[in-house]
Simulated scan of single mutants.
Amino acid sequence: MIAHSRCWRDGLIRPDQPLDDHTRDRHRAVHALLGQGHGLLECARRLGWALNTVKRYARAASAEELKRPPRYRHTLVDPFRDHLRRRRAEDPAVAVTRLLAEIRELGYTSSANLLVRYLNQGARTRHANHPRRAGWSRG
């Protein structure tokens, strides 16, 4: 099913992600070797990749075809999605604690942590000053 995701995604393409540059580079590498007359197995050997990976990149006419829409699973917050979207449209700076209190009145019984993760899905921000990101070592 994943191999045919572009068939059923209804033209929905996600915004560029940091991994997309990597995907484009890999697509170019496979197609450059194929353009030089190398076969799929030889491409896999030269690049040090699995044959199925090379086949996937070779089948795609462009790197954009390899982009997949984000997949979100059903959560306990979903029944309150419309309320949350409406509130955040009215007041983008509304506090999460306020939203939590509002949806608890509507019947939400799960955690604040789940709500925060739900509100932040798709926003992959990393803290540059995190020790693992800054190159710090443990004492």
Results as ranks from 00 to 15, higher is better:
M1N: 12
S5C: 12
R9T: 01
R9A: 07
D10E: 12
L12M: 13
L12V: 12
I13M: 12
I13F: 14
R14V: 10
P15L: 11
P18D: 03
P18E: 04
T23A: 11
R24S: 02
H31Y: 10
A32Y: 09
L33C: 02
L33M: 01
Q36L: 15
G39A: 06
L47I: 01
W49D: 08
T53A: 14
V54K: 00
R56V: 13
A58L: 11
E65H: 09
R68C: 15
P69I: 02
R71W: 13
R73A: 13
V77E: 04
V77D: 02
P79V: 01
R86P: 03
A89D: 15
A89Y: 10
E90N: 04
D91V: 09
P92H: 05
A93I: 00
V94I: 15
V94T: 10
A95G: 05
A95R: 09
V96T: 15
L100E: 05
A101W: 09
R104N: 03
E105A: 06
Y108H: 01
Y108W: 08
T109R: 14
A112L: 14
N113I: 06
L115I: 06
L119F: 04
N120L: 08
N120C: 07
A123W: 02
A123C: 11
R124Y: 14
T125S: 09
S137Y: 13
